[in-house]
Amino acid sequence: IRCIGVSNRDFVEGMSGGTWVDVVLEHGGCVTVMAQDKPTVDIELVTTTVSNMAEVRSYCYEASISDMASDSRCPTQGEAYLDKQSDTQYVCKRTLVDRGWGNGCGLFGKGSLVTCAKFTCSKKMTGKSIQPENLEYRIMLSVHGSQHSGMIVNDTGYETDENRAKVEVTPNSPRAEATLGGFGSLGLDCEPRTGLDFSDLYYLTMNNKHWLVHKEWFHDIPLPWHAGADTGTPHWNNKEALVEFKDAHAKRQTVVVLGSQEGAVHTALAGALEAEMDGAKGKLFSGHLKCRLKMDKLRLKGVSYSLCTAAFTFTKVPAETLHGTVTVEVQYAGTDGPCKIPVQMAVDMQTLTPVGRLITANPVITESTENSKMMLELDPPFGDSYIVIGVGDKKITHHWHRSGSTIGKAFEATVRGAKRMAVLGDTAWDFGSVGGVFNSLGKGIHQIFGAAFKSLFGGMSWFSQILIGTLLVWLGLNTKNGSISLTCLALGGVMIFLSTAVSA
Rank of each mutant, 00 (worst) to 15 (best):
I1L: 01
F11K: 05
G14F: 08
M15I: 13
S16T: 15
S16D: 03
S16H: 09
G18I: 01
D22Y: 12
V23A: 09
H27W: 07
C30H: 08
V31L: 09
V31Y: 03
T32Y: 03
T32F: 04
M34V: 09
Q36D: 06
Q36V: 02
P39T: 02
D42A: 01
I43V: 13
I43E: 07
I43T: 11
E44N: 03
V46W: 10
T48H: 04
A54K: 07
R57Y: 06
S58E: 10
S58A: 15
Y59A: 04
C60L: 02
C60K: 08
Y61K: 06
Y61P: 00
I65N: 02
D67E: 15
D67Q: 08
M68Y: 01
S70L: 09
D71L: 13
P75N: 08
P75Y: 07
T76P: 01
T76D: 09
Q77I: 05
Q77A: 10
Y81Q: 07
D83E: 14
K84G: 13
D87W: 08
V91P: 00
V91T: 10
R94P: 00
V97C: 08
V97Y: 05
G100H: 06
G102I: 03
N103C: 06
G104F: 06
F108E: 05
S112F: 07
V114A: 13
T115K: 09
K118T: 02
F119R: 03
C121L: 01
M125I: 14
M125V: 11
M125L: 14
T126R: 04
K128F: 06
K128C: 14
S129G: 07
I130M: 13
N134Q: 07
L135V: 05
E136D: 14
E136F: 02
L141S: 02
G150K: 06
G150C: 01
M151P: 08
V153R: 08
N154T: 12
N154V: 02
T156D: 11
G157Y: 02
E159P: 04
D161F: 13
K166C: 03
T170S: 04
P171Q: 03
N172R: 00
N172L: 15
T179F: 14
L180W: 11
G182H: 02
G184I: 05
L186E: 06
G187Y: 14
L188Y: 06
P192K: 06
P192A: 15
G195C: 10
F198P: 02
F198T: 09
L201T: 07
T205G: 14
M206H: 05
N208K: 12
H210R: 11
L212Q: 07
L212M: 13
K215I: 08
W217L: 01
F218K: 09
P224R: 03
P224T: 05
H226M: 04
A227N: 03
A229G: 15
H235F: 07
N237M: 13
N238C: 11
N238G: 13
E240V: 14
F245C: 11
D247P: 06
R252K: 15
R252T: 02
R252N: 04
Q253N: 07
T254P: 00
G259R: 07
G259W: 00
E262R: 05
V265M: 12
L273R: 11
A275V: 15
A275D: 01
A275G: 15
G282W: 05
F285H: 12
S286R: 15
G287K: 00
K290P: 15
R292M: 03
K294I: 05
K294Q: 08
D296H: 14
K297H: 13
L300S: 11
K301E: 13
G302H: 04
G302Y: 04
Y305I: 02
S306F: 04
L307W: 14
C308I: 06
C308V: 04
T309P: 09
A310G: 15
T313L: 00
T313G: 10
K316Y: 04
V317F: 15
T325M: 10
V326E: 04
T327L: 02
E329P: 07
Q331T: 09
Y332L: 01
Y332Q: 09
A333H: 11
G337Y: 12
P338Y: 07
I341W: 13
I341A: 08
P342R: 06
P342K: 08
M345C: 10
A346D: 01
D348G: 15
P354V: 11
R357C: 04
I359M: 13
N362H: 10
N362I: 09
T366V: 07
E370R: 02
M374H: 02
M374G: 14
M374D: 02
M375S: 14
L376T: 01
L378R: 02
L378G: 05
D379C: 03
F382E: 05
V388A: 07
V388L: 14
I389Y: 11
H401S: 13
H401R: 08
T406A: 10
I407N: 06
I407S: 04
A413Y: 11
R416D: 04
R416M: 11
R416H: 11
G417C: 07
A422E: 00
G425I: 10
G425H: 09
A428K: 09
A428N: 03
W429Q: 03
W429K: 03
D430C: 09
D430P: 03
F431A: 03
V437L: 15
N439P: 00
K443P: 06
K443T: 13
G444E: 12
H446A: 08
K454T: 13
K454P: 09
S455H: 12
F457N: 09
F457I: 12
M460A: 05
S461L: 03
S461F: 12
S464V: 00
T470C: 15
V473D: 02
L475H: 07
N478T: 06
T479C: 05
T479Y: 09
N481F: 06
I484V: 15
L486P: 09
T487Y: 10
C488V: 00
A490T: 11
M495S: 10
M495E: 13
I496L: 15
F497G: 01
F497D: 12
A501Q: 09
V502W: 12
S503Y: 15
